[in-house]
């Protein structure tokens, strides 16, 4: 317990602090509603216009709509940008203090990053659940609403997969943070990874809807585990062996990225130059 004490404290401190940014959560929710609404209408138009293709689709319209709302709700759970706290401390040189703590710097940054993403995702997801899950059916738009998981097994798989997604996203966030620490700026990496994540996490288009030839490659790449896999598990599109494979992929990428990150961090910290005289 004592071994974990610094990391638990760092997590809860950041989590509780970030939860207080209500205006940011509401603004984020509004933006995500807007994009979610547009995407839902586009999918509905496509499915209506091409009934033959829709019938052959690996996901039904209802599944795609629930997937879309969930993707919007959990957007903050993907590592969109470097941890701003790390970027700032690298820039100002306060990163020195992280090296003065009797803790493993990788783990410290990892838990802080996880807290940052979780605390941003939680209020946005709650608002989205109310908006797309409760309000839409009440106003007669239940066809376009966020639906509960179809089976208990799907719900259970999602409940396991979601924390794994956070672990995987945090491991990837650390790679981004380490690049920031090495290059002393977060601009380049933020722009680069934004576009990768929006496509390969399934946020732009569910990965199951891509052409057959691309599907396997898309499923096994690391970004799928941050969003696409838990969302497919939720809507029941992945089940049975597929579900186990999905969870296994998430765990595999988490471990791989953590090992890679720790190796890179050790190298960067050896030649870290703390700014200022």
């Amino acid at each position: 317990m004592d071994a974990a004490r610094p990391y638990l404290a760092a997590f809860s401190s950041r989590f509780l602090l970030m939860l207080q940014y209500r205006a940011a959560a509401i603004a984020g929710f509004a933006t995500q509603c807007w994009w979610g609404g547009i995407k839902v209408m586009i999918y509905a138009a496509f499915f209506a216009a091409a009934p033959a293709a829709a019938a052959a689709s690996p996901m039904t319209l209802a599944q795609v709509i629930t997937y879309t709302w969930l993707a919007q709700a959990l957007l903050a759970l993907t590592p969109w940008s470097a941890d701003p706290e790390v970027a700032l401390s690298v820039r100002t040189g306060s990163v020195a203090f992280d090296r003065l703590r009797p803790v493993d710097t990788y783990s410290l940054w990892y838990v802080r990053g996880a807290a940052w993403m979780a605390s941003r995702a939680l209020p946005r997801a709650a608002l989205m659940l109310v908006g797309a899950g409760l309000v839409l059916p009440l106003v007669g738009l239940s066809d376009w609403a966020w639906k509960p998981p179809p089976t208990l097994a799907a719900a259970a798989a999602f409940a396991i997969s979601l924390p794994l997604a956070l672990a995987l996203s945090s491991a990837f966030l650390m790679i981004v943070n380490i690049i920031v620490a090495a290059t002393l700026t977060d601009r380049g990496v933020n722009v680069l990874f934004n576009s990768l994540i929006i496509v390969f996490s399934g946020n732009l288009l569910p990965l199951a809807l891509y052409p057959d030839w691309a599907r396997t490659a898309l499923l096994v790449q690391p970004f799928a585990g941050m969003m696409d896999i838990p969302l497919r598990l939720y809507v029941g599109q992945l089940s049975g062996t597929g579900a186990l494979l999905g969870l296994g992929l998430q765990a595999f990428w988490t471990v791989t990225l953590i090992l890679l990150g720790r190796w890179a961090m050790a190298r960067v910290m050896r030649r870290l130059e703390v700014q200022g005289g």
């Binding site: 610094p6 404290a9 401190s13 602090l17 203090f97 003065l100 200022g276």
Partner: peptide
């Protein structure tokens, strides 16, 4: 076993009250 103060930087958390920063440091140093 060492304590460090850099006059030009802050080791406390900018947005946290002083006492919470102290609590967090006590946890970090166990």
């Amino acid at each position: 076993k060492i304590g460090v103060v850099f006059g030009q930087r802050t080791q406390l958390w900018w947005d946290l009250p002083v006492s919470e920063g102290f609590d967090l440091l006590a946890d970090i140093y166990r």
